[in-house]
């Protein structure tokens, strides 16, 4: 394990993870909102926002799937040291990390069951950039209508049709994060 794997965690975990969680909560509660998320640094290609999310939400109790783009020895070592999440295949993942292309097709992740719709995967999709233009969003958390640049439309429309089952998404780019819960209705703008 090299030095890079041992660094990049929170210096003050209780306080930094509390702030990071509030950001994670805010963006999921208000789909389309983009916020800054900083604090953790993982080996490339993991963005600072995605690393911070992982450190805030994952631990040995959350099986994690790394898509090809992010499944490197350095990233694995970093996760083993800082998080301890068991690395698993798609079918058992509570969380998944990768670029959108690498995570697709998303219909291979668990979407929960009618009795337990919460037993589904949360995807952290790394994008090149995040902006508040693009797909039109309506639903819980959105006053009238919000906009978010999404990598595609169909997959999210199909996901929303599964409600209350389905996947939830975080999008990360650099130090920026946005989210899209399964409850959001997505239309091309």
């Amino acid at each position: 394990m090299d030095i890079q794997s041992l660094s990049g965690g929170f210096e003050n975990a209780p306080v930094q993870s509390a702030h990071a969680f509030r950001t994670a909560l805010n963006v999921l509660s208000r789909p389309g909102t983009i916020m800054e998320l900083r604090g953790a640094n993982a080996p490339a290609p993991v963005s600072e926002a995605a690393a911070t999310l992982l450190l805030t939400l994952c631990d040995p109790e959350t099986p994690l799937y790394l898509a090809d783009t992010h499944d490197t020895k350095e990233v694995r070592d970093w996760i083993a040291f800082h998080i301890g999440a068991p690395l698993v295949g798609r079918a058992h993942a509570h969380f998944a990390l990768g670029t959108w292309e690498a995570l697709s097709p998303i219909n291979t992740f668990p979407i929960g069951t009618p009795e337990y719709p919460d037993r589904s995967t949360t995807l952290i999709a790394e994008l090149d950039e995040l902006n508040e233009h693009g797909a039109s969003l309506t639903g819980p958390g959105i006053k009238d209508r919000a906009h978010l640049g999404l990598p595609e439309i169909d997959a999210f429309q199909m996901n929303a049709c599964l409600f209350p089952l389905g996947l939830d998404f975080y999008f990360t780019a650099g130090t920026r994060v946005a989210a899209l819960p399964r409850s959001t209705k997505v239309e091309a703008d």
């Binding site: 209780p14 993870s17 509390a18 909560l25 999921l28 719709p117 819980p140 958390g141 939830d168 399964r182």
Partner: peptide, 18 residues
């Protein structure tokens, strides 16, 4: 911290499935 993470994950699921 581990307990808080567990609760935080539950809160986020709750938000996703109102």
């Amino acid at each position: 911290e581990q307990t808080k993470r567990m609760i935080r994950r539950a809160i986020l699921k709750g938000i996703a499935i109102p």
